[in-house]
Design a protein around this nucleic acid. Structure first.
Lengths: 139, 139
DNA sequence: ATATATGCAAAGACTTTGCTATCGA
DNA sequence: TCGATAGCAAAGTCTTTGCATATAT
């Protein structure tokens, strides 16, 4: 999708990848920064951002640009969908295949756009927030 | 979805609604601010943001929280989908009905979430950018 | 009359970037 | 070696907020 990055594997890059792979959540840059800093106390947030961007462009990690504000990252590659809790902001994977957008193609064609990607995002309330009786959006 | 807002119709609110309705694009807060300022030169950006938020919560306008950064707004209510140009950031409507997510419900149920909404976003390259030969993402 | 909204400006949240020293291939 | 990268800090972008005044109902 972009240039063919030839990545130089620095210590920081390595640790970022490892920490991301270890998490099974979809952390933000800041959360990753926190993890990485435990192992590389002098790492800078800028480095984390630069590397997450680079790694996602190189295809080694996923960048989840879900609605709202903050970006999230994902060590799992391959198409899969997410559901986000409107209350706490948590993002989780939805198992199962993406339904091919057959029926959508005609509508797209009418817009004149070249279709690149179809993203599906679900919004809901996660079990923890439901139990807490928090039903109003916050994140 | 939130409280039952009883909106007091101020001049600023009025003009924001009018300008948004007049545009058939999906402007950002800043673009709306520019329009509104032509008619109310002393309006503040804060007021525009506050009102867009309020109006969208009241259901009078739509807030498009599409991936990435900036928020966009929409005078059309009712479910419809959007396609965004990865090059110039333009957002357009896709005509046609939303396909009911029948096949998705089981997958959602497995997550334990209470499903509130399903959003579909298409990414592509708009005709103008395609003609300009700009195929790399930028916005 | 009075609860709400405005304008203004400052602060906030998140992300990017310029610069110089350092490091990996 | 030497171009890519790190750390640091400053700047940037978009959005929210505190406060005193003005306004809609």
């Amino acid at each position: 999708m972009m240039e063919p990055y030839k990545i130089r594997m620095t210590r920081q890059r390595q640790v970022i990848l490892e920490e991301l792979a270890r998490l099974h959540t979809h952390p933000t840059a800041d959360e990753i920064y926190g993890r990485v800093r435990m192992r590389l106390p002098r790492v800078s947030l800028g480095t984390v951002y630069r590397n997450l961007e680079l790694l996602s462009r190189s295809g080694m990690i996923g960048k989840i640009e879900i609605a709202g504000r903050q970006m999230h990252f994902d060590s799992e590659r391959g198409a899969h969908r997410h559901i986000r809790c409107i209350r706490c902001g948590r993002i989780e994977d939805i198992p199962g295949e993406q339904v091919p957008p057959e029926c959508d193609r005609d509508a797209i064609r009418a817009t004149g756009y070249t279709l690149i990607e179809r993203r599906v995002e679900f919004l809901g309330i996660c079990p923890a927030c439901r139990r807490a009786g928090r039903n109003e959006p916050d994140a």
